[in-house]
Design a protein around this nucleic acid. Structure first.
Length: 267
DNA sequence: TACTCTGTTGAATA
DNA sequence: TTATTCAACAGAGT
């Protein structure tokens, strides 16, 4: 589930623990979640350290601790962060639990597509330093986006929007929302958009992202009526404008919903 | 019970 | 280099 705005929402769930010390760490060391990560080191260094800050970028999060510790969290498809009372007993899918006095910070992920990274050092670890410009930032210019679409010109635009190296945080439902608003068929080759249509796409990438952050990122509210978001789950959804039943297909390997009226044919 | 689907992504293959 | 397919996994739905 978690895309840009959901990730931001989950990041804030651990805010209760800011400025407080970790007293114990419980984790499921053998799980895929921790692939490539030294969990022994986490268990050794985190207890006694203080949670100082957190930040989300696209689908990635970083939690910084004293002692120059960096904890990276990716929620995958089914991950979520939450806070529990001090007497909480971790269950099967609670793969990482940071205990503090009075609460426990929990990373829960049944499907284990998520990821935990850990680093100690004064400077940013590579996995955080190399993050691409946020789609809502000044650095995400039309020129940057357009050049990327030219390089990926054969890829269906839907698939291109899902590439995190250029569109960090955009996931399946956001891509559908953006394309619907930009009136572009999801199967359109990325390189075939003319200047004005590409520009409209760029505007909608930014608009949908900003709105999602303001609405979903704030308190996990659903977007208002008029969003494709409210129609695209399950079958029988209709275009908010035409009330026409949405088309569905797998494009770029992912379930895609669109309006044949708004988004026309393949070109 | 068996089979299909899923909001991700990265490894393997073409 | 870039595009496509599939597996990692668990649970919900049909």
């Amino acid at each position: 589930m978690p895309e840009l705005a959901e990730v931001e929402f989950y990041r804030k769930q651990w805010d209760d623990g800011l400025g407080r010390k970790i007293v114990a760490v419980h984790l499921h060391g053998g799980k895929r979640l921790f692939r490539g990560t030294d969990t022994r080191l986490m268990e050794e260094l985190l207890p006694g350290s203080t949670l100082l800050s957190s930040e989300a970028h696209g689908k990635q999060m970083v939690f910084r601790f004293s002692r120059a510790l960096w904890l990276g969290v990716h929620l995958g498809m089914t991950g979520r962060l939450h806070v529990e009372a001090a007497d909480f007993t971790p269950a099967k899918h609670d793969h990482l639990v940071l205990a503090q006095a009075g609460r426990k910070l929990v990373f829960h992920d049944p499907r284990v597509f998520g990821r935990v990274l850990f680093h100690q050092g004064k400077t940013e670890p590579a996995w955080w330093a190399k993050r691409p410009p946020a789609v809502t930032s000044q650095a995400f210019t039309f020129a940057v986006m357009h050049a990327f679409l030219q390089r990926r010109r054969k890829l269906p635009i839907k698939a291109a929007l899902l590439l995190q190296e250029r569109f960090p945080g955009i996931g399946n439902w956001m891509a559908d929302e953006i394309l619907w608003r930009a009136a572009i068929h999801p199967g359109t080759p990325a390189g075939s958009l003319d200047e004005s249509r590409a520009h409209e796409l760029w505007r909608q990438v930014r608009w949908v992202s900003q709105q999602a952050l303001a609405i979903i990122g704030k308190d996990f509210s659903d977007p208002p009526k008029g969003w494709l978001f409210n129609e695209r789950w399950g079958n029988g959804g209709v275009c908010p404008i035409h009330k026409r039943t949405l088309r569905r297909a797998t494009i770029g390997g992912r379930t895609t919903a669109w309006c044949a009226d708004c988004q026309g044919g393949k070109r």
